[in-house]
Every structure is written in structure tokens, then in C-alpha cells.
Nucleic acid binder design. Structure first.
Lengths: 218, 218, 218, 218
DNA sequence: TATGAATGAGATTTCATTCAT
DNA sequence: CATGAATGAAATCTCATTCAT
């Protein structure tokens, strides 16, 4: 004796809507859409997100989405860009903040980890798309390039010796991998202490940011 | 008011069909489906793959898919399992092969890298699904656990000191991250020599498999 | 590795399409869908009807169906509701019309019979679904309740003594059963005169609506 | 975070199977299939029943079904025939049993009611199919004819005056309708006592089977 | 007769996208 | 710009039926 779950076509939705009193600035609309998209992509993944829902969540009608973005992929890339610059300005802020090298490195690890924890699902979608879609792949490569440049700039600003590009890329990749494992709860599920992983992450960062201690790392 | 609609089985079609002589072993059919699925998942990603196509590619009709798997996710997990055991038996074979520790480590790196290069897209889908779907996530965690056990066993067999589980997990993650970057062509696109990345990968493996050289790693 | 598959919107098709000038009132669309559904359910039965056909028949694309109804069952229930209220407003109209009790009763019988003749297949599906599906069952019970209330109201308005609820339910059931047999052509096929059945129906109604004649019924 | 319910392809099923040690009499196989079909049709309805399941439930492979029946409809009709003769032989048995007319009538009402309660869903499917499918419709008419003949024979045997065929058909229909309402729990759900409905059913039967009491009917 | 793997047509449903207002 | 009803291609999944053994 089966029965379906009726889709709540119009009731519940208005509860979620923000509808910020009909803001007429296109920039604002775009921003709202990107924000909503980021949130949904990050909880349901790219393929679990539908463009109508993005619009609705941002307080707009489905059609509005296509006024601002040619397609779903475009807004995904916009979210990506937002995301990358947010991460790096936060990194930059931390590096500019005072304290010992060790303190800074610690703050950095925490921030990066937190960032990954927060964007876990979005990042997973990014990787998957990147393997399948040339445009996303290119965007990701470009972003990696910019990450390495930023890293170079930051390290240079600290008067430390700049490592090879390969070394920097590796560091980015390792940081991501370890952060993901912690953020995704993998370590925990495997009975591995998150602290130990974080410590390994910290060690691996030592060389790059240099603090005089003996690098005995990963 | 008709009693039955006789299905008009179009004659022409059966002429075109390849129909691989109606294999009658379900195990064989299942294997063929998994094989086809692996191939397609790995080129189009999970969401770019449809069950009808898997069946067709394996030489069967759409319905046959559902005789052997309840849904697309089930075959994805089956592919995953295949994949994991294939990787580890190859690793084991290499470790059992003769030669110096360095030679073995080198062969290992190459093999793992090759494996990642080959399964790049599949793995990306795996990660993405793992972030969204509990079953996949659980399967992945379980597999990681087995990977660590296998690693422990292999290292112990070599009479080397067994590192902490955290350290082993980190090594798995790092290897994957670096391999992915090389396999995905990221390094190349960024003007970074793949060899250098491979060298870093090799160094990071040294500690775990131990070869007496000074570990001056990542 | 494609970014997007542009859908090739075949030109020719839009020429053929009837597209009833894109009615823009959802209410109107819904009505059209319900109307089409009623018609098809009533000729092919619930299981012989598919949602795409309903949409097409109403002049819409398949997807439009799901904009207005979550599934086939929902539109079936909508049709049912329409149907019940149509029947009872017609009954009410007849009871309000002038003439002797006998004349009214006769008109009533004819109307009810006609109604059943017209909706024979739909009603059969309703019964079948009601035995299998809890939601339909509940809807049917609810509707029966309302029918009894309406009946009570109508009888009371005629200053006749209101019979027991059991008696009223029985009357509803008997009327339906006899009407169905006539409407379905069962009587005829069995060499039984429809008039005689109608007369029995008429007699059985006498008590309820009261006309002073001796009730010598079924 | 969704997950599917895996279909238990081969485990649970064997539990249900009767597999009566490979009975090789085709008659026996047919009987087992009809029995299983009756059971499933009656719980899931015609459209909710699949031929593979019938076979499995009877302890056979899907193909076996088609050795004994040309299609699903054929077995439905076979079940119907079984059902009708079962009902009438039970009626006959009761009428042949001793006791006062009143007692017999009472036993009869109970038996008929019980029969309807037991076969509620099957009968609903029968009606629905009958509205859509000519073959089923014909079978039902034929069966009705036989019912009326049997009724005539039974009444004649009791030396009571045989009513008109219309009257007998009406009685069949009324009995069915009232029984269904009780069997389906409709009366109960509407706060109507089943006993009262049964009493009305009993009264309506009085005339036909005659017991000298004043007919104060429906 | 019985088997059971395979079939394939077709129904249900989704959702990125369009377009007239 | 914004709207939102409508679109329709396509994917998932079912199941009555076949056929080689």
C-alpha cells in the first residue's frame, strides 16, 4: 500500500526565500545567485543542484538565473573564482598578521583546514568536473597557477628562499589531501587522530615557510 | 477495448545486433557489465554514464543491466571493489619482486602513478560521490582501512618498523594527490616537470619502505 | 571532454505542434490537464493511461504534467474530486427543480444512471485503486462521508424523516451497483431489460426520498 | 544523503518458495500457479502483480508460467473461474445444510460476506479489467449468467417462487455492493455499524429465498 | 515440461533551458 | 531586468515475454 510524497510546490519554499525587497541592481542579483549556488553546490554537489533551485533560494524566478549566467556551469565557475580568492585573501591576511613563524603557520593550518572542511562537497564536485570537462579543467589549472604565484609572492615577502614550483605545487596538493581527509571525517572514521594529521600538515608546511627548525617531515 | 497489444518485434533489428552468442553464465555477464561500466565511468564520469549505455557496451539489452544490479550506484561500487583489489595485488606483486629497495620503490611509484593515470576520471567521480552519498562514503572508508592494513602487512613483511596509522594514511593521500596531479596533466600544464613530482613522491615513500638513505622529504 | 551539449532544437517540429497559444494561466492549464486526464482514465483505465499522453492530449509537453501534479495518482484524485462534486451539484439541481416527488425521483434516477454510464471505466479504476492504495481509499471514504452528509441535507430540506446512516450508505451502494450493471451493459447482455433494473432502482429510492406510496422494494 | 534499497535478488525468495519437490504433473503445476496467482492478485491487484513473481511464488521459474498460460490475463481468468465455482459450491453446500430458512439465510450471508472480505482486491481488479478489456468483460457476463442459473436452480429446489431474472441480478449486485462496503471497511470508517449493513443485506435476501416474514426491505 | 538469463518496448520522472510578457 | 509557465530530451527502471538448452 504505497503512497507518494507530495512535492510541496509552493508552500514551504516561500519560507526559505530571502527576496530582499526587489533589489534592482544586477550586480546584487548576481551576487545573490552566486551565494545561493555556492551553498547548494556545496551541500548537494554539482549534479545534485538544479538551476531553478538556485534561483529560488536566491529569491528569484528560474528565468532570472539565465539572465545572469549562460548555464549552470558558468555559475559553478563563478563560485569557484569567488572561493579561490576568498581563500587566498584569508591566507594573505594571516601571513600579514603578527606573531612567530610557528604561530603564523599554526593559524594558517587551521584556516586552510577550516576552509576545506567548509567546502568539502564543492571541492569534490570541482575535481570530478575537472576530470570530465575541459573548461573546468582549464579553470582549475589557471587557478593553480595563480595559487603558485601568490605563494611565491608571499614567501618572497617573508624573505625566505623560494622553493621550486614543483615543491610548491606538491605542498598545495598535500595540504589539500590532508585537509580533505580530516574535513571529510576519514581520519576519524579510521580511528586516526585528527591532531596527528594536522601535525603532519604543519610539518610539511615548515620548509616552505621556513622557521629554522629541522625539517623532518612527511 | 483491446485485450492485448502484440508487440511487433521488428525483424530488421535482430540482423544488426551483435548479440555475443547469448552468454549464459550470469557471472560472465556480470563481469562484462562491470568491465564496460568501469570503462565508461572512467571516461564520462558517474553522472555522464547511463545504465543503458553500459549494457549496450557490454553487448546486452538495457533490461539486462537491472537483472544484475539494482541500480547505477551498485555497479559503481562493484567497479570500485574490483579496482581496489586490482591495485593492491599489483602492489603486492611488485613488493614480492626482487631487486634493491630503491628499485622496488621506483617500480612501485611507476605502477601507482600508472594506475592513477588510467583511472583518473573514475577516481574523481568516486570522491565526488563520496561527499554526497553515504554508501559510497562508507565504502571508501572501508577500503582505506583495508589499504592501511595491507600496507602494514607489506611493511611488516619487509622487517621495517611500522609507522603510525596516521603516517600511513598521510602517505596514501600524498601518493594519490601527487599521482593525480601528474596523471591529470596538471603539472605539465603548469610548466612543472613531471619527473620532479615523481621524485618528490619517491622521497615521500622512502621513510615508509625504509632504505637507509636520509629522508629529506616533502 | 565536452563542456556542453547544445540541444539541437529541431525546427520542423514547432511547425507541426498545435501549441494552444501558450495559455499562461496555470489554473487553466491545470483544468485542461484534469479534463484530458478524466477523458483518458475513463477510456483506458488508470493503468492504461500514461502521463505523457495526458499532457499531449491537453496540448502540452510531457514535462508540463509534472509542473502541475506530482504524479499520476495526484491527477487521478483531482479528477475524482471534480467528478464527485459534479455529480452532487447535478443531484442538488434536480431536487430543487419542480414537479411531483415521483417526477423528481425519476429524473434523479436517469441522471444518476447517465452519470454512471458516462464514467463507468473511471469508476472501475477508482474501485481497483481503492483496494490497493491507501490514499485513494481514504479519499473514497471521505467522499462517501460527504455524499451521506449531502444526502442528509437534501432529505432534511424536503422535510422527510432522515433515515439511518447505514440505510443511506446502503442506498448509495445499491444505486451505484444497479447503475453500473446497466451502464456496463451487463443487464442487456444477460437478456435482462434495463427498464426493469431502473424500476428496481427507482423503488429502492422511494423510501429515502419518501412519496407516500407503499414501499415494495428490492 | 540518499541510498537505495538493494533488491534482494536471490536470498529471501527461496524462503517463500514452496518448491514441492519437483512435481512433474502439469496439472499440479498449473494448479500451483493459479493458487499463487490468486494470492498475489488479491493482495497487489492485477497491475501490481508480475508474472515472474507468480511463478517464483509457486516454486517455478519465469518461463514455466508461459508453458501453462499464454499470458497474464489468461491466468487471471483461470483464477476467476476457480473463484466463482468455489463460491457457488459453498453456497450450494449451505443451502443443502439443515436448519430453518432463517438460519440458512444467516449462514449464507456470513459466508458470502466472508468470501468478499477475503477476495476484495481480486474482485476490484476484476471490475476494473472488465471495464477495459473485452475478454474479461465477456467472462464476467458469462459468469453472471451462470450465477443466475445456479440461483434459479437453488431457489427452484426449495420450491419457492422463482423471481424475475432482473430481480435476481439485482440481488447479486446488492449483495456484492453491501459485502464490499463491509469487507473494505468502508462502513466502519464511516462510523456505520457493520451489523446494520449485514441486517439490510439479510433483509434484501429474504424475498428471494422466501421465509414468510413480511418483506420490509432496502 | 521446465529453466532462467535475456530482452526491449515503454512508462515515469527530472531538469536545464527558453521565451512571451 | 525579472518573470515563471512551459518545454522536451533524456535517464532510470519495470516487467511481460521469449528462447536456447
Amino acid at each position: 500500500m504505497r503512497t507518494k510524497l507530495r512535492r510541496v510546490t509552493s508552500a514551504a519554499k516561500s519560507a526559505t526565500r530571502t527576496r530582499p525587497e526587489r533589489h534592482r541592481q544586477p550586480v546584487e542579483t548576481r551576487r545573490a545567485l552566486v551565494e545561493a549556488a555556492a551553498k547548494i553546490f556545496n551541500s548537494a554537489g554539482y549534479h545534485g543542484t538544479d538551476s531553478n533551485r538556485i534561483a529560488r533560494e536566491a529569491g528569484y524566478a528560474p528565468g532570472t538565473f539565465y539572465v545572469h549566467f549562460p548555464d549552470k556551469l558558468a555559475i559553478f565557475l563563478a563560485v569557484y573564482e569567488n572561493w579561490v580568492s576568498a581563500e587566498w585573501s584569508s591566507v594573505e591576511a594571516i601571513l600579514k598578521s603578527g606573531g612567530s613563524a610557528r604561530a603564523i603557520r599554526r593559524r594558517l593550518s587551521r584556516a586552510v583546514l577550516e576552509h576545506h572542511r567548509k567546502w568539502r562537497t564543492f571541492r569534490a564536485s570541482l575535481r570530478a568536473l575537472s576530470a570530465t570537462d575541459d573548461v573546468v579543467h582549464a579553470a582549475r589549472i589557471a587557478s593553480r597557477g595563480r595559487q603558485i604565484e601568490t605563494m611565491t609572492r608571499l614567501i618572497r615577502a617573508r624573505n625566505t628562499r623560494v622553493p621550486s614550483r614543483a615543491r610548491m605545487l606538491a605542498q598545495l596538493l598535500i595540504a589539500e589531501a590532508l585537509c580533505d581527509a580530516v574535513a571529510g571525517g576519514d581520519a576519524k572514521s579510521l580511528g586516526i587522530s585528527e591532531e596527528e594529521i594536522v601535525r603532519l600538515l604543519d610539518e610539511s608546511a615548515r620548509d616552505l615557510l621556513g622557521d629554522g627548525a629541522t625539517s623532518r617531515t612527511i
